[in-house]
Structures are given as structure tokens and as C-alpha cells.
Nucleic acid binder design. Structure first.
Lengths: 290, 290
DNA sequence: CATGGTAAG
DNA sequence: CTTATCATG
């Protein structure tokens, strides 16, 4: 939590008072192995960036190693996958969450290391409110394999959870590597990928529903950036994909409309200013002003 | 084959003639993965060293890759292990062998990638003779595991082959990573290793027999260096073993007495003069003058 | 083209 | 501590 920004506001009584406004800087990043990311300089990125809530995907390390690498000063919620060295999501926050949950759905995704939720108290005009933050890692998928079945199964469960969260909270945020590009603006070479996992019509239809009137979530970065290509958040390690910015926008901030209205300063940290690219994904950082 | 060295000698007829003496420089090196070794500068070592017959162990790469890395100008005999990325021995020679064999024993070691033989023609007072060169890779072993059983089984088969070679050839040479230190001179910290694979009494007894009167082979480097500690040929990657020269002499040139008599200039290329250590083993290079 | 776990050394 | 393979991304 950053030092509050003091500003004047009109009170309900019609007088003039002073209130502390709180800004939360929330970052999501698929680190593709937190050990490798730290070797490549993730620590200096994190030290510079002033993040309040850090959501990680593909942690791919035991809990003890994650705590050692992040160091003191973080409350860490970490859902490891049962399979060692695979998946794993976490939420590291500078203030303690008031409640946490570590999976969605039934037994099938119980130990998949793909979903964690943390509830935080945030200030509100009426006092305080609950902000639920989710770090999510949707399956990569692969056409005509069981991996794609698992991906749809997870997206189904996720649909249910998004519906529930939307119905029960004003402030909820689902961030992470969702492994689907929603529109043609979200993939550099979309025509070449219409038959590939990550841009299949059936996958994109889920996101139409997530962001449609029925479920009613908002794509925060798209809302702030406007209808322009990108900004991409993942580039293959192969060839010159990164240098050519031949990427995919598959890492999202999905917010309830009430929360999306508080968002600003959305940035993909494409590592130009840092020593090195520390993952094949770049962090997506957004400030929320309460 | 290096350019012959011209020297005078007395002929059988009592006259004085001129003959070309041939020197063969034979090197053995456990490369611990030829791809990794080339990344670390094995190519410049090889280009500098003037080797005529290069015997490799732990090649750990498919045949096509070995041929590409060594480049043109070599006749390559390569026994891959059935298990990909494991073991693998080779003999690369500047002149073509006249016969080759790629295993010893029965089916059990047929595809283990641990033994190759190549026959070369070398000049002799009487005309030409056959020189058999073997590149051997004995199991590392591990006490109280099936690996140690395999090691003894291989040493048994090797005993038989050494006996046969000794009986049928004047010139035979077995080089390679034999994974046993013969005497207390062959391991820096021998006292700490008497119960460890590589210096077990039962293993050392095989080498007593190999180099004893019965089978009658000669330890070429020990013969030339004398009864002094080392020179070691392998150092653990861990800690400062290499810098402290805390090593093992487990890479040998084993020659028939007739061949050992022609040996000189035995050197362990401990990489001081090269850019880097390209394996955990150093090459052992010996010149044989026919 | 990279990750980590694994077996092997 | 390093090797290569493997499944995964």
C-alpha cells in the first residue's frame, strides 16, 4: 500500500474535509519459473516498481524457495501444483489479506496450482469494502489432445466463479495468464493462429461471455488502451519474436465494472528499461485508486 | 599420421639405409557430452594438439551430431548407447582403420556404448603390423546398487578381452575412462575413498591382474611418469576440486609391453594453456613411435 | 527456445 | 555441480 494521496472532497454533510485516498498498484506476471526469473533480474524489477500486490503464475518452485526469493515484507499466498516444477500461482501482498482461497471447482483442479484468491479490505466512501484479487493460470492447451479438454473444463469452472464473484462483490479482480487472446487486436499474427490453441473461436467465445453483458467483467487494459493492436504480454523465446514484437496479449486484468472505473496507468513492462527479459511474459501493472 | 621422421638405421644386410619412422599421437578424453565440450572450446584444443587418433568416452550425442562437430578429415567409429544421451564411445582417426568392432561380451553389453575397437596398420621392422586401439568406458559404479554389479560384470568381460588381445597382438592399446584408481598414487585423497566406487579393493584387484604378469599389460603413463602421485585426469565439478588438484587418475593408456616400449611424451592436458576446462576429465595424450 | 525434474556422472 | 532427456509451455 503506497502512502496515501491526500485530497479534498465534499462531505455528505456538504462541508469540506480531507481524506486519504489509497492507491493499490497491482502487477501480474507469469514468471515461467521464479528461480530462472530471479537469475535474470526479476529482483531489480520488483525493487523498482513499487508494487503493492504481486500476482504470479508458473511459479514452478517449492514454497520455501518462493519465500526465500521474495524476501521479507510480503504476505505470500502460494498454491503449488501437485506435480513438482509445474504451474503454481501466488499472491504476494504488502498488507495481509483478510481471507484466502486456493482453488476453484471440484477435486479435479484441487491441486493444479492454477487459481488463488485473496480478500483485502479497501477504503470506500461508506467505510471499507472487500476487494477480491485472483491470480489465475489457465491451461495453455493443445488442439486435439486431452490438454485442450482440461482447458475447456477449467474455463467452464472459471465461468461459474466469475459469475459468483460478479454477483457478490463490487470490487473483484482476476489477473493472470489466461492463455487466450480475445480479439484480433490481441495477437500480432492472428490470421496464422485461428486454428491454434490460444486463439480458437471456441476459446474466444468464453471471453466474449466474460466481457459481455451477462457476466459483465471489464478488460481493464483494453479499456484504458483503446481499440489498438496489443499491447502484447507474451512472446515466444524462438527466433526474433520479442524484438519484432510478434506477441500475444494473454495476460489480463479482468475487473468488475466498479473496480475497472478506478483503474489507471496500465503498463506492460516490456523490459526495455530493465537489464533483461526475465520471463517470456512481461508484467502487466495497473494502479487502482480507491 | 604425422609427417614421418627420417632417421638412419642399420639394415638387416648390415648396410646403412633411410627409413620413415611413424609417430602416432593418441589421445583419450571423456568429453562428458561432446556438445557441451565443444561449447567450452574443445575445438580449439583439438585444432592445436595434432592428434592422430582421438578416443572419446561419454559422447552422449547422436552420431550425426558427432560427425558435424568433429568436421571433415576424420574417420569416425562411434558406438552409441541404446539409452539416448548416455555413455557412447568413439574413435576418430586421420587414417582409416582396416577393421572395427563395437562391443565386447554377449548381448548384455551389446548396446551399452562402452567399447569400440579399431585396427590400424602400422610400420614395423618386418613390414607392417596391426595396431588395435580400443576406446573404453567402464561403468562408474555405486556401492550396494545394481550399477556396481554391472561394473564387475563389465570388468569380467574386459578381463577376457584383454587376455585375448594380449595373446593375439604385439600392438594393442586400450584407452579410456576405466573408472578405477589402481593404486594409492592415483587418488589425491585415497584414504577417504577406500569404501567408494572407483577405489574399492575388489575393483583395484582387477587392475592388479590387468597389469600383473598373468595378463601382462602396461600402464603407460605410470611407466613414463614414475611412482609419483597423479597425474590426475578427473576432478569433480563441485567445490574447488580442480583448482586444488584434488583429482583421480582413472583415464588410462593400457598397452601391450611391445607397444608400451614405443610410448613417450605422455601428458595430461589439464587445460592450463587452453581457454577453459571443456570436461570434468582432462585428455591424456601419448605419442607412439613406430 | 526456455523451464524444472530426473537419472546419471 | 554438470550432463542430456523429458514433458510442458
Amino acid at each position: 500500500m503506497q502512502t496515501g494521496i491526500v485530497e479534498e472532497f465534499g462531505t455528505a454533510e456538504g462541508g469540506v474535509g480531507t481524506a486519504v485516498r489509497h492507491q493499490l498498484r497491482i502487477a501480474t506476471v507469469n514468471v515461467n519459473g521464479i528461480r530462472a526469473a530471479y537469475k535474470r533480474g526479476m529482483d531489480s524489477w520488483l525493487a523498482d516498481r513499487g508494487v503493492d500486490i504481486l500476482c504470479l503464475q508458473e511459479v514452478r518452485a517449492p514454497d520455501a524457495i518462493v519465500r526465500k526469493l521474495l524476501g521479507d515484507g510480503w504476505h505470500i499466498l502460494h498454491a503449488e501444483a501437485e506435480a513438482k516444477g509445474r504451474a503454481g500461482v501466488a499472491i504476494a501482498s504488502r498488507t495481509a489479506p483478510v481471507a484466502t482461497r486456493d482453488h476453484i471447482g471440484d477435486e479435479y483442479f484441487l491441486t493444479s496450482g492454477r487459481w488463488v484468491e485473496a480478500d483485502f479490505e479497501v477504503p470506500d466512501a461508506e467505510g471499507t469494502k472487500t476487494l477480491t484479487v485472483v491470480s489465475a493460470y489457465v491451461h495453455s492447451g493443445e488442439v486435439d489432445t486431452p490438454k485442450q479438454e482440461d482447458k475447456y473444463r477449467f474455463l467452464d469452472v472459471m465461468t461459474g466463479r466469475l459469475t459468483d464473484l460478479r454477483a457478490t462483490r463490487d470490487y473483484a479482480l482476476v489477473v493472470g495468464d489466461l492463455n487466450v487472446g480475445h480479439t484480433e487486436l490481441d495477437i500480432k499474427n492472428w490470421k496464422g493462429n485461428v486454428k491454434r490453441a490460444g486463439f480458437l473461436p471456441e476459446e474466444r467465445a468464453y471471453f466474449d461471455r466474460f466481457f459481455g453483458d451477462g457476466i459483465g467483467w471489464k478488460d481493464v487494459h483494453r479499456g484504458l488502451a483503446g481499440e489498438v493492436p496489443g499491447p502484447y504480454t507474451w512472446w515466444s523465446w524462438r527466433g526474433q519474436a520479442f524484438d519484432n514484437d510478434s506477441g500475444w496479449r494473454i495476460d489480463y486484468h479482468m475487473a468488475t465494472p466498479e473496480l475497472a472505473a478506478l483503474a489507471g496507468n496500465a503498463v506492460v513492462d516490456r523490459a526495455a528499461s530493465y537489464d533483461a527479459r526475465f520471463s517470456d511474459h512481461a508484467p502487466v501493472v495497473v494502479d487502482y485508486q480507491f
